[in-house]
């Protein structure tokens, strides 16, 4: 069997940094909200899913924090955790090699790469889950990112479960050059297969989400959700201002801007994501069950009456004599 189905022990999320300090945030810390400049008590903020109680600014989350907030307690099983990046271009610059950069990032972030993949349940409903960690090189999409997402998609198909991606990214990873760009094609191609298998992909766009991730799998999901005020776009505001000298309007590229322009299905605040996910998954599940029952009924009938199955037979309200409809086709 493929190695990625092995249940692997979790990577320890937080290592002490170079000075031996624990990096987890002490509970007594005060945090200034970038949304309203209020000083917030860190523990209160954490208890509120890291959403400002004053202005509802959604603070950025680490991938494992998101998984903990979204999934049923103890249900998350990580996949593909030992796929490690390497340096296909032999990339190096003034600040050293790409390998060195990766090693420092891994030590600082406590993660081995920019996405975490696995399976979990949300309100008891199973799903495959791929979550970006913006603290890992801006959750830039390189080879490992693409490979983990594709494997999770293939695993979802094999298990017949939906896929959810929670996205935040600065775009493609520069250090892997064209390998990174090709992950856009690779991920989208895998998701075509998920769709062909009748399984939904739910995408959540969180702050910030740009470039190659927005221009590939994350925006062609069956349902595209965004967190309030998340910044989402193709080109970043700085690039647009520099190249066009255009003054950008207030609220440009926010989730609300995207909703207004028809680019996302809905905005979901963090405290409603669990309920919304469960609600959507229930609809897809119901639709599948109804279709499967109809199909089973048709098969049974076909077996009994030796008739060719027609799509008419799928209609739930068929008349008792509608076995004749096969001839009407």
């Amino acid at each position: 069997m493929r190695g990625f189905f092995h249940r692997q022990s979790k990577f320890q999320p937080v290592d002490p940094d170079e000075n031996g300090n624990d990096q987890s945030i002490p509970d007594d810390l005060w945090v200034k909200c970038p949304g309203c400049n209020e000083l917030l008590y860190s523990k209160e903020l954490n208890d509120n899913l890291r959403v400002c109680p004053k202005c509802e600014h959604h603070f950025r989350l680490r991938a494992r924090e998101r998984i903990a907030m979204l999934t049923d307690v103890g249900s998350f099983q990580e996949w593909s955790s030992r796929i490690l990046p390497q340096n296909p271009l032999g990339f190096a610059d003034g600040s050293g090699t790409y390998e060195g950069r990766l090693e420092r990032t891994q030590r600082k972030s406590g993660e081995l790469e920019a996405v975490i993949a696995g399976e979990a349940t949300v309100e008891g409903k199973p799903l495959a889950l791929v979550v970006c960690d913006f603290d890992f090189l801006g959750a830039s999409m390189g080879s490992v990112f693409g490979e983990k997402l594709v494997r999770a998609t293939e695993a979802a198909i094999e298990r017949g479960i939906p896929l959810m991606t929670i996205n935040a990214s600065g775009g493609a990873r520069m250090h892997e050059g064209l390998f990174s760009l090709m992950q856009m094609a690779k991920t989208v191609a895998a998701l075509n297969r998920l769709g062909a298998a009748g399984l939904p992909h739910l995408s959540v766009l969180t702050d910030p989400c740009y470039g190659g991730v927005t221009a590939s799998y994350a925006t062609v999901a069956d349902v595209v959700m965004a967190e309030p005020k998340a910044m989402v776009g193709f080109a970043g505001p700085r690039v647009i201002e520099q190249t066009t000298k255009q003054k950008l309007p207030e609220g440009f590229q926010t989730a609300e801007f995207l909703l207004e322009h028809g680019m996302v299905d809905l905005i979901v605040s963090r405290d409603q994501l669990r309920v919304m996910t469960a609600s959507l998954l229930t609809h897809y599940e119901n639709a599948r069950v109804v279709a499967a029952e109809a199909s089973a009924a048709v098969n049974a009938e076909a077996h009994g009456e030796d008739i060719v199955v027609s799509f008419h037979s799928m209609a739930p309200e068929r008349a008792p004599d509608s076995a004749q409809t096969g001839e009407a086709l």
Binding site: H6, L84, S143, F179, M182, K186
Partner: peptide, 12 residues
């Protein structure tokens, strides 16, 4: 396109 990428894998 599935095969494009560069990574290493530690056995579980």
């Amino acid at each position: 396109f599935r095969s494009i990428g560069s990574w290493q894998e530690e056995s579980a």
